[in-house]
Design a protein around this nucleic acid. Structure first.
Lengths: 344, 344
DNA sequence: TTGAAAGCGCTAACAG
DNA sequence: CTGTTAGCGCTTTCAA
């Protein structure tokens, strides 16, 4: 059973192959007669014709493929998703792309392995990169000459479009909320603080909220590790061994918070009575936590959607308009913060 | 800046295009002289040549692409991942595929939308389908004539390879453990119980454990909904309104359990003192739960790895050897079960 | 408004 | 051991 190709359709419809191609791609704005279109479409349906995108890509230089790169955050770890955030984001990206007739080529990368080869080899029409990706590799990607969207990266380069959130402002809101609840000594717990990463911005937001309230940022109130549950536990340990100096913490990711809670609770520290916590992301996890997390909510689905939209818009327009898209944040109050009881 | 093609390499190396192709694909087992190989490889590197896979696919009918389909479980919901299980699995699939030089084409599907078109259009070399996918669509996929691996499906058809776990046995272990802890009245909570789905097997396992212990399976001890957090909450509600008849529950997915715990705890039902729970999957969530979940552990990473391996093996071998792969399960004891206090 | 013809970049017989 | 020669299935000038 041979695959039906454009020629078969052409024969069936009594037209030429190129005519079929025209009606299928509505190329030079509708220059095909309605009847012909009819006949062709009927033939297509009758034969169950499905175009061969490889052939199409070859001759048209468009692949209808969007490359999604989720860099391995923790080298050596085979899992790219230590964080449910990725799953939620990816879902939204996939969904949006599909709505527009695009498909997704999903990749991780090993430490330092470059993605350029994959992207070029497949001729992707655009690339979405989530999180931090080494600058050199990023630069190499420019040679692809397709739109590249950076999600949650502060790399400033006209060549890349970006989509992110008000990280600094969010962190400030979180910290301020803790301050408003009477906390004076507040820990900052995050994944690694990298150049151009989100955590550095969040740290800045934390600092500025502290300063605005006339509070000092103590060096030993800052905890930085990796974005995963395990680190949360480790941070709890560290917190205790440093002498439990703070009455509250701003944690930059829900996953870490989950670990932190566990680590603290195991040591009979009560949340929020003993330590209040404001978290960040509002993945579905945060409602599952016990206590449910007061956290900075970001619209992950929207982020994914915009990322795709950005790629598609850029792919359509001839010239390169550098675009930055910043999504708003809001504080969701649940049960992990309480007013600090006044002391002597 | 024109893309460098195989011809450029050929010229650079002073050989013909086909020779380049041969050394790049080591086609008819090493019939190229070492020196020529040398020269070609050098030219490849010097020019930074990257093959165009679209062209390659077109002429070789192999795409080095594996299609991964994650059917939308809850229609209308844009998210395919209401369950972290998928993220963990997908990570492992991506990683393994990449190790073998394959790329991943990731898709969801709308309700009833068929995947055949996508798969055919891209010429995927194999397909991995996770979870339940309507039988008719599944059948249509046979026409692709590429290996298809079903993950967690009990569809019996020589045409499909399958990879799964001992669902029935796992459920039995879970239930038996509850029984051993003195529980006589045990609820069964799961997602939708579909033909060929895993839940029906788990239900059978539950039933057989009950029967072996001489316990009746009460109709009102069975709860069935969707595989998500929200349903867990709903099930808790239902449990309470049905009069709180059971002292324990076997829940077929960690996500549901999370919701169930929350729903119960909000109503001042203590876990495990009032109700003991054994869960299923052992996604990383289960340690984050409060109390940490006693659950049936499955090796999700291994599942993903095997799925890819199955596709690749099948793609290589000429004839079709139907393969079934069943991964073992084990009970992980944490804190969500306690011995039933003897009553009257 | 439609068709003929020339590729897109690569692979795979088949010669030599 | 290597080069020649056809395509793979589709798009896209260019003519008609």
């Amino acid at each position: 059973m041979k695959r039906v190709g454009i020629k078969d359709v052409a024969r069936e419809a009594g037209v030429s192959a190129s005519t079929v191609s025209y009606v299928l791609n509505r190329t030079p704005t509708e220059t095909i007669s309605p009847e012909t279109q009819q006949r062709v479409m009927e033939a297509v349906n009758r034969l169950g014709y499905v175009p061969n995108l490889n052939a199409r890509s070859l001759s048209s230089r468009r692949s209808n493929l969007i490359g999604v790169l989720i860099p391995q955050t923790e080298p050596g770890k085979e899992l790219m998703f230590s964080n449910p955030f990725y799953g939620e984001l990816l879902s939204s990206i996939e969904y949006t792309a599909r709505q527009h007739g695009y498909h997704l080529l999903l990749s991780g990368t090993e430490e330092d392995q470059d993605y350029l080869g994959i992207a070029r080899t497949r001729g992707v029409d655009g690339v979405i990169i989530v999180g931090t990706y080494p600058g050199a590799n990023l630069n190499a990607l420019k040679s692809l000459e397709v739109p590249i969207v950076l999600v949650d990266s502060y790399v400033k380069d006209e060549a890349f479009h970006t989509i992110g959130i008000e990280d600094k402002e969010g962190a400030r809101m979180a910290t301020r909320y803790l301050i408003e609840n009477g906390h004076r000594s507040i820990a900052f717990v995050s994944g690694s603080i990298r150049e151009n990463g989100v955590n550095i911005k969040r740290f800045q937001g934390y600092c500025s909220a502290m300063q605005e309230a006339g509070l000092a940022v103590e060096e030993d109130a800052v905890y930085s590790g990796t974005v995963d549950y395990e680190y949360g536990i480790a941070a709890a340990q560290e917190f205790l061994s440093r002498g439990r100096r703070q009455t509250a913490a701003f944690v930059t990711a829900d996953v870490i918070t989950m670990g932190l809670l566990r680590g603290l609770q195991q040591n009979h520290v009560r949340i929020p009575e003993d330590v209040s916590v404001v978290s960040f992301d509002d993945v579905y996890l945060s409602q599952m936590a016990y206590p449910a997390l007061t956290t900075i909510h970001q619209d992950i689905a929207e982020k994914g959607k915009q990322a795709v939209q950005l790629v598609l818009n850029a792919a359509r327009s001839r010239e390169h308009h550098h675009t930055e898209c910043i999504l708003p944040l809001r504080l969701v109050v649940r049960d992990s913060v309480c007013k600090r009881r006044d002391e002597g």
